[in-house]
Simulated assay, not measured.
Amino acid sequence: MLAGSILAFLGVSALVIVTPGPDTAVTVRNALLGGRAGGIFTALGVSVGQAVWAFATSLGIVALLVASEPLFLAMKYAGAAYLVWLGLHALRAAWRPGEGGEDAAAAARPARRLGRGAAFRQGLVSDLGNPKMAVFFASLLPQFVPAGQPAFTAFLALGLVFSLMTFAWLAAYAVAVAKAGDVLRRPRIRRAIEGVTGALLIALGLRIAAEQR
């Protein structure tokens, strides 16, 4: 029974993790801006955020947060605003006017790379500001806690497994984007990706703000 519960949890977690969302969009964008390190540190920030959610779930804090309408709404709107803010920055980078020969000049000079600290922070805030993570951990984890096991230990263990799986998946995304970096960072292609990513982040932020629990 224990093995079956673990396998079921791993299967559900894998489906949730591979479904693209705000964390994936932020990781791909930061891998484009900061190379492999930028993407991996973003993935690390996301996974640390999930570890925080797991710890908070183990302590019962997440259940209180989900039950409190004002706190839940404040977190939801703050997270949505952060995604919209990132999206607007991406759109500004995509639409920034340039002079003649801009592509040649941009290709000739080294691009400013996203720092590891900034990448980590964006991944962390993106995940902590996503109210779906609170609902996910509060509703899903209890279903896979084996009977007779201490709730704190079981919640924390399952949450950390989910966090490590997320890191592995997003880090693989980052490596793939980094390998294609020379092509993807060509000025016109980079601006196109920035535009698409920016629009996606804004759409995700607006969807989070508008949707019900």
Rank of each mutant, 00 (worst) to 15 (best):
L2I: 06
L2P: 04
G4L: 15
G4F: 11
G4A: 15
S5G: 13
S13Q: 04
A14R: 10
V16P: 09
V18R: 06
G21P: 01
A25V: 08
V26W: 03
R29K: 11
N30S: 11
N30F: 03
L33M: 13
R36L: 12
A37H: 06
G38K: 10
G39P: 07
G39Y: 12
F41Y: 10
V46M: 03
A54Q: 02
A54I: 01
A56S: 08
T57H: 06
G60V: 08
I61C: 07
A63G: 07
L65A: 09
P70D: 08
P70S: 03
F72T: 07
L73A: 12
L73S: 13
A74V: 09
A74Q: 00
M75A: 15
Y77N: 12
Y77K: 12
G79N: 06
V84K: 06
W85N: 01
L88H: 11
H89G: 14
L91K: 01
A93C: 05
W95C: 13
W95F: 14
R96W: 05
P97W: 06
E99S: 13
P110I: 02
L114F: 00
G115S: 15
R116M: 07
G117H: 02
A118F: 04
A118C: 13
R121T: 15
Q122G: 13
G123P: 00
L124D: 04
S126G: 10
G129H: 04
V135M: 10
F137A: 01
A138E: 15
Q143V: 00
F144P: 00
A147M: 08
G148D: 02
A151Y: 07
A154E: 08
A154Y: 08
A157P: 14
G159W: 02
G159M: 00
L160G: 09
S163N: 02
S163P: 04
S163F: 06
W169G: 03
L170S: 04
A171W: 11
A172F: 12
Y173Q: 10
A174F: 05
K179G: 15
G181Y: 13
D182C: 09
V183E: 09
L184P: 04
P187K: 12
I189A: 10
A192S: 10
E194R: 02
T197R: 03
L200E: 08
I202H: 00
A203P: 15
I208E: 11
A210E: 05
Q212M: 06
Q212W: 10
